[in-house]
């Protein structure tokens, strides 16, 4: 009687154990079970949507009904490359992304150098937190704050007034400035980490061999931190290239590629898709370029 009850009680548990044992003996099965869901997610939702984007760029729209006509044609891409305004906007967008990235590098280096090497060690984590804090604030709040700063008679004008200057107002410089502010932490963090881990004796070694600080920076620090800078630039570049809200708020009349996608999406989905593939292609090219620096392994 007791025996029967016991076996019954242990039934499910024994099965579970057998199952666990089976899984333990078959690592491939285990891996498959573990990865199926995330891989499906990646393939179907992520790559799938990219594929749909690309495919739909080859469709057209009925100009009367604005309904998508599923007939293959490269018209959209033809328009894209032959219409001067599109070319101009694409170049402007890439230019903004590059400018933001360059500014981020220039600003991030001294800041990261300070937080990683100069500041007292017990202050460093706090400084890193301080750098990250803006990331917790809402994107829109930050951009609107910059709108206030850059507006007529705003903080920027007020500070430049004694010098007989005025702020840049709304426009392309304001956009670059605001985007730089927005994405700066993404650049500082990897550079900070790289500098924090940078072996101090390499600086000594370089100086010892006769290199002045500038030379040491160029030949030793920069090449070793470069992968991290490249990693950070992947964020600053792609986030800038995809942005269309900041430019609406502080960009004055400037339009970037995101704005074109946005304004086409209701009326001409295929054209919007064609426009949308441009940043994707640019970013893929950028990633390929950055991969050579070893950036992808330091993200």
């Amino acid at each position: 009687m007791t025996v029967v009850a016991q076996t019954a009680g242990q039934g499910p548990r024994a099965t579970a154990r057998r199952l666990a044992g089976a899984l333990h003996r078959r690592p491939r099965l285990r891996l498959a079970l573990l990865l199926t869901a995330p891989l499906l997610w990646l393939a179907v939702l992520y790559l799938g949507s990219l594929a749909v984007l690309f495919v739909s760029a080859f469709w057209t729209t009925d100009s009367f009904t604005s309904e998508v006509v599923k007939v293959w044609s490269a018209d959209n891409f033809h328009t894209l490359f032959t219409t001067p305004v599109y070319r101009q906007v694409i170049l402007r967008s890439v230019g903004v992304a590059l400018a933001v990235t360059a500014l981020c590098v220039v600003i991030a280096f001294p800041v990261a150098f300070y937080t990683a090497r100069v500041a007292r060690p017990r202050w460093r984590p706090l400084l890193v937190v301080a750098i990250l804090t803006p990331l917790w604030a809402s994107y829109l709040v930050k951009v609107y704050a910059w709108r206030l700063i850059l507006s007529q008679g705003g903080l920027c004008d007020w500070m430049l007034e004694p010098l007989g200057l005025s702020g840049p107002g709304f426009g392309l410089p304001a956009t670059v400035l605001t985007l730089t502010y927005l994405w700066l932490p993404y650049m500082i963090l990897p550079v900070h980490t790289a500098l924090a881990q940078f072996p101090a004796n390499l600086l000594d070694a370089s100086a010892d061999l006769g290199a002045r600080p500038g030379r040491t920076f160029r030949s030793v620090v920069a090449p070793m931190v470069l992968p991290s800078v490249a990693a950070g630039s992947i964020f600053t570049f792609s986030l800038s290239l995809g942005d269309y809200i900041t430019v609406q708020i502080v960009g004055g009349k400037t339009q970037l590629i995101g704005n074109l996608v946005y304004s086409n999406i209701e009326l001409d989905l295929p054209m919007a898709a064609a426009l949308g593939t441009v940043p994707v292609v640019v970013i893929v090219l950028y990633l390929l370029a950055m991969r050579r620096t070893g950036a992808l392994s330091s993200i």
Partner: peptide, 27 residues
């Protein structure tokens, strides 16, 4: 340091990891 005619062999060598052996020596 760069103004002194003295070179140092460091305890943990302090070789530049991004350079080849030859580049290290020629630095």
């Amino acid at each position: 340091p760069f103004e002194r005619d003295v070179h140092t062999v460091f305890q943990d060598y302090a070789l530049f990891p991004h350079m080849t052996v030859e580049q290290n020596v020629a630095y």
